[in-house]
Nucleic acid binder design. Sequence first.
DNA 1: GTCTATAAAGGGATAGAC
DNA 2: GTCTATCCCTTTATAGAC
Lengths: 195, 195
Amino acid sequence: MGAEKQHTKAEILALSIPLFADSGYTGVSMRQIARAVGIQAASLYYHFPDKQTLYIEALNQAFSKHADFMNESFALQASPEERLKHLILRLCIQVLEDNTFRRLMQREILDGDEKRLQLLADQVFGNFFKDMNELCRALNPNRDPHLMAISILGLVLYHFQITPIRSFLPGFRTSHNNPEVIADHIFTLLKNGCR
Amino acid sequence: MGAEKQHTKAEILALSIPLFADSGYTGVSMRQIARAVGIQAASLYYHFPDKQTLYIEALNQAFSKHADFMNESFALQASPEERLKHLILRLCIQVLEDNTFRRLMQREILDGDEKRLQLLADQVFGNFFKDMNELCRALNPNRDPHLMAISILGLVLYHFQITPIRSFLPGFRTSHNNPEVIADHIFTLLKNGCR
DNA sequence: GTCTATAAAGGGATAGAC
DNA sequence: GTCTATCCCTTTATAGAC
């Protein structure tokens, strides 16, 4: 109908997600969010009862966006090793491209209370981690799949977590920021160990 | 010297470090720090010109405390593999016991500006990472030591980073929080890959 | 659905007494 | 070295007009 474009909840959330990812919950004010959206801070309270709720809904939106993606690398018909290789490369590329999501997740693991962590576990990791477990079992039934799954995830994520400081560490080369180089390193490590 | 016990800079820093580790820079107020110390907020400004400086000095104190420890696992006379095993177990135990330090470090990697990251790289990782590089070279000269060193560090740290959410993930057992179990898993993984 | 105005609380920081 | 008192700004959140 004749209504001009108005700001929806989803739009506000989409704009506040990168702010929270960059500066954390206490590091972002309602005024900053409002400025990013292009409205007054008071107007945010028409959409959300308080800052907490806005934040939780932002998390929900950010997380659900990624739930789907995760469940693709497992479908393809191939040997467990091939699937692992494919998964690692996809993860590396995805994590590199969506720094916002990775940072938000990291902050949640640092700061989230039990309820929020449960949300993260269910919504983001839920099926993904179950599939990871099964892949790990297929790779080697004698290894603890939970520990293996976390190790694989940790290998990928840590290489990107540490990016800001990496260039100050001995032995750094610019190629170490290349997702294909990292993926290849991780896959070989998982395949052969450090030999 | 009839002076009663007075609060020293070092004491204030020691009390503020866990606060910053728990809630981050913006999540902690000068009043909160003062309360933890048992003085008024204004008194903090006798010791430090501003909050930023207090924070940086807290980081310095927290980091330098750990610089020494790191350089022990490399001294012992043994095969590279033995040294790796020893290092991983020590790291796991250390990281488990000092959550504060781990969290502070994680927050710095998320939020630190270039200058603070340089401090972290030099003071905490500096020699440690150089020794790690050499150990990796000894383990296998054909592998990129920088990537290997980060992988080893990432494997250890991620298992502890993810602790708060681990119990919500499929396949969890309480033994997965045991540092010896984790260390053993990581060492075997590094030695043989996932086979 | 957004605005202006404003309340109420909390933040960093300073002045000056002791 | 710590206190009280205070300044000034920002923050979250509400009220009411449009």
